[in-house]
Design a protein around this nucleic acid. Structure first.
Length: 152
DNA sequence: GCCAACGTTGGC
DNA sequence: GCCAACGTTGGC
């Protein structure tokens, strides 16, 4: 079992949107970064738990928990010229981009804010709080996962 | 809205 | 392969 964190802008797609989705499950599409792609394609396993992080909003932080419902498969939105994340260089015969399906587990009782996470010295190794980090998907080790949940 | 950090692109 | 220009991310 692995643990992860995935970022999304709540104005675009937040934890409440996932909860309202049919089957409370949605494809995590539109990721166009190779490191993040590799994790979705190769490393995420069905049942892995994921923090849902709200970014680029008034109060950035961890808002809920979801789990991997389907392992990596080609992100077909890359093939559709009308799609926002269309990539003409992704060939259906050899897809460049991958996505996973995520399923809602629960909201946290409150949002655990980025500033809280930054203030906690035990979390200083967390990629999320490191300066200049821009990865939208990152692994979380079990120790950090438990520490963060204990803040709830 | 600003800007630092970082990834990507493309000329050479 | 180098590197400047440009685009994006995302906190503040």
């Amino acid at each position: 079992m692995n643990y992860w964190l995935m970022k999304s802008e709540p104005d675009v797609f937040g934890i409440d949107d996932l909860c309202k989705a049919p089957g409370k499950t949605e494809p995590w599409d539109g990721v166009r970064n190779y490191q993040a792609r590799n994790m979705m394609r190769d490393d995420m396993k069905k049942g892995d738990l994921v923090f849902f992080y709200h970014s680029n909003c008034k109060e950035p932080g961890i808002a809920g928990i979801m789990k991997i419902a389907r392992e990596g498969y080609p992100d077909h939105t890359a093939f559709e010229p009308k799609e926002k994340y269309f990539d003409p260089k992704s060939d259906p015969g050899n897809p460049r981009w991958y996505m996973v399906d995520v399923r809602y587990v629960r909201k946290l009782k409150r949002v655990i804010t980025l500033s809280e996470l930054k203030q906690n010295p035990e979390l200083s190794g967390l990629p999320l709080v490191r300066r200049g980090n821009r990865l939208s998907i990152m692994p979380i080790n079990k120790r950090h996962w438990d520490l963060i949940l204990a803040l709830e």
